[in-house]
């Protein structure tokens, strides 16, 4: 019992759980990517036409924002392990800010499209080619689901921030923060594929 319940063992158990959870997330998003590929194979021209609506500049900036948030999250974990809770808390705050920044830019992109009447089921959209209807359906579903995951990531990081400043996360006891990091980097990874598939195919 004493050997098994050790902190190290607990940390590794927690990490197993988080990796397994991420596998399920991978399959979840994976199915959407599969649907994307099948429909793109069906409607190559319509997908190109649809992607013309994407703003490559905001998309690229947003990608950079998310990559930077991954950096600050990784640094926050190293900082805690080095015993520097204050630095870690600051970096976590920065991570959350970048995550929210990403969501704001994303919301702006949605807003621009919605003002143009490009949203699922809209009269403008329903007059377009079937492939374009599918393209925008996928766009809203996939970026929306990704955004929800990122939002959950921000919320969980807020908890971790609270634990860190209260000292409940420390160099010896940081499995929770490490797992939050794993999740955050995974959500980031999903975007690494969403970005080229929606923004770079014009």
């Amino acid at each position: 019992m004493a050997v098994r319940a050790e902190a190290g063992q607990k940390a590794v158990t927690a990490r197993y759980g988080m990796w397994f959870f991420l596998y399920t997330e991978f399959i979840l998003f994976g199915m959407l990517f599969l649907l994307y590929s099948v429909f793109r194979y069906r409607f190559p021209a319509d997908f190109h036409a649809g992607a013309m609506e994407e703003n490559i500049l905001t998309g690229s900036v947003n990608t950079a924002v998310l990559l930077t948030s991954s950096l600050t999250m990784a640094l926050a974990i190293s900082a805690v392990k080095k015993g520097n809770n204050r630095l870690s808390a600051g970096l976590q705050l920065l991570t959350m800010a970048l995550g929210i920044g990403f969501l704001c830019i994303k919301a702006y992109e949605w807003y621009v499209k919605i003002v143009k009447g490009l949203y699922p089921g809209s009269p403008v959209l329903l007059k377009m080619h079937p492939g374009e209807i599918i393209y925008f359906g996928l766009y809203y579903t996939m970026t929306g689901l990704h955004g929800l995951h990122l939002f959950a990531g921000v919320a969980v990081t807020a908890y971790m921030f609270y634990f860190t400043i209260k000292g409940r996360i420390s160099a010896d006891n940081c499995a929770r923060l490490e797992n939050t990091g794993l999740y955050w980097h995974f959500v980031d990874m999903v975007w690494m594929f969403l970005f080229p598939l929606f923004y770079l195919i014009t």
Binding site: S70, M73, H185, M189
Partner: peptide, 10 residues
């Protein structure tokens, strides 16, 4: 990029 994310950040 995903590989870097997986092997280093994660």
């Amino acid at each position: 990029m995903a590989w870097l994310d997986l092997f280093f950040f994660m």
